[in-house]
């Protein structure tokens, strides 16, 4: 199997692509292949990973032009074309290098974030936007003696969003984030929506207004890439649509309509 890997480090004018070839054993993942390449061909390949099991969200990268977790993506179905995900187009997933999808696995860093080295991107912007939505529970009532109970049905909707592992695959797949660098992006907005619908939360309505600005709820163009690439099936675009709907209702109420 052939591999084409994006290589970049400080001081280079533009990235280069390194080519490797080896026969991977059945079941090997992209992360496994990166370890193999590091150990057998070039120990300077840089990438981030942590849990190796799709829990931590550290190893998101652009694999065959789709943002995915390296640890969760197996090579065989990938090369056989079984893992194709149709995406609404944006510049990073257009042709950046000659690539034969039937012969080669193409591994590049996550789009929309500055590359620090090879497959490692600077996540600061992603986490700045995440902090902007105040991602902690702010209950109104005093701390209960035991615990805050929730209706199981409410938990079901909440879980859709709490499953997020902050891997930034959605951020790297969002055409709007590519075009408008101020846009908070799917993950942060999904997180904000999650606190808006949390029955234990005290500031539900004012939460919505945190992102009531063009670079918040209103810049989403509903491409839906975020949901398609999410390794945890979080649907940011549904949360965004519902938040917009709710904001419109609140605003109309205030206008006396």
């Amino acid at each position: 199997m052939k591999f084409k890997i994006f290589r970049f480090k400080e001081g280079m004018e533009k990235p280069i692509y390194d080519k490797f070839e080896f026969e991977p054993p059945t079941g090997m993942t992209v992360l496994g292949a990166l370890f193999y390449l590091q150990q057998n061909f070039d120990d300077s390949i840089a990438f981030h990973y942590s849990c190796r099991g799709a829990v931590c969200g550290t190893c998101a990268m652009l694999i065959n032009k789709v943002p995915r977790l390296a640890c969760r993506t197996q090579l065989e179905p990938l090369i056989q074309g079984e893992l194709k995900i149709p995406l609404s187009p944006y510049s990073a997933i257009e042709e950046t290098v000659a690539w034969d999808p039937e012969e080669e696995i193409l591994i590049e860093p996550l789009p929309h974030l500055p590359v620090k080295k090879d497959l490692i991107v600077d996540m600061d912007k992603f986490f700045d936007y995440y902090l902007e939505v105040e991602p902690v529970l702010q209950p109104a009532d005093p701390e209960p003696a035991l615990e805050r109970l929730m209706d199981p049905d409410a938990v079901k909707e909440l879980e859709l969003y709490t499953n997020c592992i902050l891997c930034a695959s959605c951020f790297g797949s969002c055409p709007v984030d590519g075009a408008k660098p101020d846009y908070l992006g799917p993950a942060a907005l999904a997180k904000l929506y999650r606190f808006y619908i949390d029955p234990r939360e005290g500031n539900n309505e004012s939460r919505l207004f945190l992102a009531d600005k063009p670079s918040g709820w209103w810049d989403c163009e509903f491409h839906g890439n975020c949901r398609r690439v999410c390794p945890k099936d979080v649907p940011p675009l549904i949360g965004i649509a519902k938040a917009r709907e709710k904001l419109n209702i609140i605003k109309n109420r205030k206008d006396g309509k």
Binding site: E10, Q38, D42, D43, A46, I120
Partner: peptide, 12 residues
């Protein structure tokens, strides 16, 4: 030993 002598993100 190993080959990688780089000062940053040196996984090796």
């Amino acid at each position: 030993c190993f080959n990688n002598k780089e000062p940053t993100y040196n996984h090796a």
